[in-house]
Design a protein around this nucleic acid. Structure first.
Lengths: 138, 138
DNA sequence: CTAAATTTGCGTTTTGATTACAAAAAATCT
DNA sequence: AGATTTTTTGTAATCAAAACGCAAATTTAG
């Protein structure tokens, strides 16, 4: 399975551009979720702010990355690990944000248990954010 | 149990002001979670934007309301139902956002099941947002 | 290499949030 | 009630985040 920027772009039928390659490399290198501004920093102001917005939106639409909620009312992003066949995502895993180092982790192996909803509520998507301290900060 | 604005203010040792009373009444009337701008609309521009920020922060600090994450990177607020002793909250219930009407509901009765974390991760707080369609929009 | 389609950068605008400070309102105390 | 103290509010200014339109640049296909 392709785990390099070019491969991913090809896989999802996206044109190969500098911005996209660089941003993808960012995601591939970091083990944590990235915010818009994390990416800006990572790219070292090499690309326009607006372009980053658009690139993230494109990746999101294609299902290359997924959104992770942040407690302060923000969003971070992380790669969808490749077991989601395209169009059929199941990132029903737990997200963990460390309140010491402020990093957010995708706990890919730790799935969200079944959540019971009242009669009439149709579940489509789900997002779990656990906050606490990560192994490094304990 | 006090379920009126004045009672709540008294209970939490807060001065009785127009803004606070009105905002509390908003929360008491609506069954859904409110964003800052929902409140602005509800108050019909009767109070300053900044005052609303401050009021929400005050309520948050006192434990009168709690934060609910929004999928688009925003925050909504809702009353803490059972008296979480101040400083000792237990709103470990599920939040549901309907993607049709965009309303967010506190499913107070539906608690978050135990979530297993990898070795070394210390859980402190948790936030669950389920998205889908609510009974009215089905 | 050329043409068509997509992507990018920039300027502008809108919106959201925070701060400082003076005015206003609430509670307290004769 | 009236005066004093403390808290709260409104205004203006500041700052950051996000969205939009358009022209220039880049990618892909022929």
């Amino acid at each position: 399975m392709d785990r390099n920027a070019l491969g991913i772009l090809r896989q999802y039928d996206l044109r190969h551009t500098d911005t996209r390659e660089n941003i993808l490399n960012g995601f591939l290198q970091k083990t944590t979720a990235l915010s818009h501004s994390d990416i800006e920093v990572y790219l070292n102001d090499g690309f326009d702010r607006v372009t980053i917005y658009r690139t993230l939106k494109t990746f999101l639409d294609k299902g290359i990355i997924h959104k992770i909620l942040d407690d302060n009312g923000g969003v971070k992003y992380a790669l969808c690990k490749d077991q989601c066949a395209s169009g059929h995502h199941h990132h029903d895993h737990v997200h963990f944000k460390c309140s010491e180092c402020n990093e957010t982790f995708c706990l890919e192996k730790f799935l969200i248990p079944e959540i019971i909803l009242p009669e009439g509520y149709q579940r489509k998507d789900i997002n779990v954010l656990v906050q606490g301290t990560c192994p490094k900060c304990n």
